[in-house]
């Protein structure tokens, strides 16, 4: 089980990084989404894996629970990463609408001197 989770994290990270290195905005956003999945699951896994041990206190005496702290951190991380994705989407959309291209790199010929003019 641990191996499956670790390999899933690794696969998502690799996919995320590869897409992050593409040259257009949309793949970069997708890559970032993949990378946030990977990071969230990674953080979650730092609490170690546990089956049927939800951190909901039982009414029926002693029970063991999984580590609740990483879950709490990941919960807010999921919501924040949505906010981040949204801002990024907005910026890339704005860039596309303003410049009519969704390339992420500045044209090498487009130097500071040109901008100053």
């Amino acid at each position: 089980m641990e191996f499956l989770v670790a390999s899933a994290i690794g696969t998502m990270t690799a996919g995320g990084v590869y897409l992050l290195l593409r040259l257009r905005t949309f793949p970069v956003i997708l890559g970032l989404a993949l990378l946030s999945y990977a990071v969230n699951v990674f953080l979650f896994s730092s609490g170690r894996l546990a089956i049927d041990m939800s951190p909901i206190l039982s009414k029926y005496g002693e029970a063991t629970y999984t580590d609740p702290l990483p879950q709490a951190l990941v919960l807010t991380a999921i919501v924040i990463s949505f906010g981040m994705t949204a801002v990024l989407v907005m910026i890339s959309l704005g860039a596309f609408l303003e410049s009519d291209t969704d390339r992420i790199d500045i044209d090498p010929t487009d130097t500071d001197e040109d901008a100053a003019k």
Binding site: E2, F3, V5, A6, S7, I9, G10, T11, M12, T13, A14, G15, G16, V17, Y18, L21, A38, F42, S45
Partner: peptide, 15 residues
Amino acid sequence: IIAVTAGAGVGGLAF
């Protein structure tokens, strides 16, 4: 290569 190395690193660390 960069992506696979990064993925292997993160996955290995998690494992």
